[in-house]
């Protein structure tokens, strides 16, 4: 692996990465959370878009691996003064950094930077395209729930039925999961209002997943996991998104719907809009994996940084 730009990977690669994340996960139980693996390496978190959760998670992951982690925010930097994406990337690379973690509002920006700067690049979310580490942490948390934390290693998600619910059209989390989970053997159904389901999902051929507009139909099938996406109705130009009331009626995991799902794991990438995507009872239920997903995020990002940058992983330049 030279970069992590997409969650599109083969089964063996995905399982190996999740297993490496299991190794990293053990650090959670230690008093001293520090591994020397990336000592002397410098990672830049280049965030053109605001993000507290993802940036902190990458920062902790890098620091626990002993890397020097520098946060560069797009706002207030040269990038906001008209400097091109290419010049920003080349400038940071010229300072001798070893790897760059990029969050951008523009789909494809990490792929272009990877071409331009010749250093490992991790996509920390690009526009409405992908968020591969989110998909990896979702797979990690789900795998632990399905097989048990001590028996997850080496396993995939064969036959596990996952429904992803919400604004599919604008969700990079949905895209990355729709690529990664099927590679691990899971069956993915995308669920959302018709105006928020993209063509790819509607025609079903590109991403190889099923699309449904009725959440109740999907609930009747008793999926193994229900992943609720963050919905930002105010962002969807007003005209095309349903109102909050309409959304809740059709696509929210309400208490009433929760009661019909006794065995289903409840997932959410956060931050949650309680009352909109899911009820508080759903968010706080034993079936909820929300906080496990956050913890998994650090382990998965440690695994990714280690794979790309550790010298024994071919990550030296």
């Amino acid at each position: 692996m030279k970069h992590l730009l997409t969650a599109a990977m083969d089964r063996d690669e995905a399982v190996a990465l999740l297993d490496l994340a299991e190794d990293m996960h053990q650090i959670q139980d230690r008093e001293l959370k520090k591994l020397p693996a990336l000592r002397g390496r410098t990672v830049v978190n280049l965030f053109f878009e605001d993000s507290t959760r993802t940036r902190s998670s990458f920062e902790i992951a890098g620091k626990w691996l002993s890397a020097d982690v520098i946060n560069v925010s797009g706002k207030g930097s040269s990038a906001s003064k008209g400097e091109s994406l290419r010049d920003t990337g080349l400038t940071i690379a010229a300072m001798g950094v070893d790897g760059v973690v990029v969050r951008s509002g523009a789909s494809g920006a990490p792929a272009l930077l990877a071409d331009w700067i010749g250093r490992p690049v991790v996509n920390a979310g690009d526009g409405t395209h992908e968020h591969p580490t989110q998909a990896l942490l979702d797979a990690f948390a789900l795998r632990r729930r399905i097989h048990g934390p001590d028996a997850a290693r080496g396993k995939a998600l064969d036959g596990v039925r996952v429904a992803i619910v919400g604004d599919i059209a604008h969700s990079r989390v949905a895209r990355s999961n729709a690529l990664l989970l099927p590679a691990l053997g899971a069956e993915v159904t995308l669920v959302g209002p018709p105006s928020l389901l993209p063509l790819a999902a509607a025609d079903g051929t590109r991403l190889g997943v099923r699309a449904e507009t009725s959440l109740d139909t999907v609930i009747a099938e008793q999926p193994d996991a229900l992943m609720l996406l963050r919905v930002q109705l105010e962002r969807q130009a007003g005209k095309v998104a349903p109102s909050a009331a309409e959304y809740i009626t059709g696509w929210s995991l309400t208490d009433e719907r929760l009661a019909r799902l006794p065995q289903t794991r409840i997932m959410h990438p956060g931050p949650m809009n309680r009352g909109l995507e899911l009820s508080s009872r759903a968010a706080d239920s034993d079936a909820s994996t929300v906080l496990e997903q956050v913890t998994a995020g650090v382990s998965v990002r440690m695994a990714v940084l280690y794979s790309l940058l550790a010298s024994d992983q071919g990550g030296s330049r």
Partner: peptide, 19 residues
């Protein structure tokens, strides 16, 4: 075509670009 940058198609949805 508000914000449109490429052909509206399954590929646009896959690439996360506005069709």
């Amino acid at each position: 075509t508000r914000g449109s940058v490429m052909h509206e198609s399954p590929l646009a949805a896959e690439l996360g670009l506005t069709g």
